[in-house]
Amino acid sequence: MNNYKPIAEIIESSTKSFVAQCYELYQAPKLGTFVQTRDDPSIVGVVYNVFTEPLDPSRRPIARGPFQNTQEKLYEDNPHLSLLFRTEVEVFILGYIDNSKKYKYESPLLPAKIHMGVSLLTKEEIVSFTENINFLELLIEGISTISEEIFSITIRTIASYRQDPEQFIFDSGKQLAGSFSHDQQKLILLLRKLGRGPING
């Protein structure tokens, strides 16, 4: 368990993924960010969807018109607006930390609890988690859920934290090739996405 501040709270939970509401509106971790639950065992996952929706799904926002000056002014002048929406993230589960503090690249057997806090992984923790190439197993399985674009963004983001980003992308590509022998054209598209290189910042 780390001492990092939680930045979101789980509002939907399954053994494959969970949804967490961010404490700050619009202050969400970016796509491809690694997060973990503040639980025991701590579940590790990657953000694959970020969205903002109204608290009351039956009350959809109505456009206010082009007369306002700036976005900030709009929210300043109408503070109630901040209370009407929430920003959420969908997280795809990649594994968990077991009793002996080792990373397990498998699905947890039970989901995380609702209202459990979620915090970010540090750079060092991400590098450590992705040291073993097997972390890709669940990620590759989940491409149909998270989409090819997110897969690519995730790998490229991790690469930027590592000592040898190009080698990491290359190794991930090799692992991918092994799993996609049945669909070469899809593989080539995926590889082209990966070939864009590490994402910085």
Partner: peptide, 13 residues
């Protein structure tokens, strides 16, 4: 000319 893709495919697919 796409060295990244060809080098990954070569030896795998």
């Amino acid at each position: 000319s796409d060295i990244f893709v060809t080098s990954i495919l070569s030896g795998t697919s």
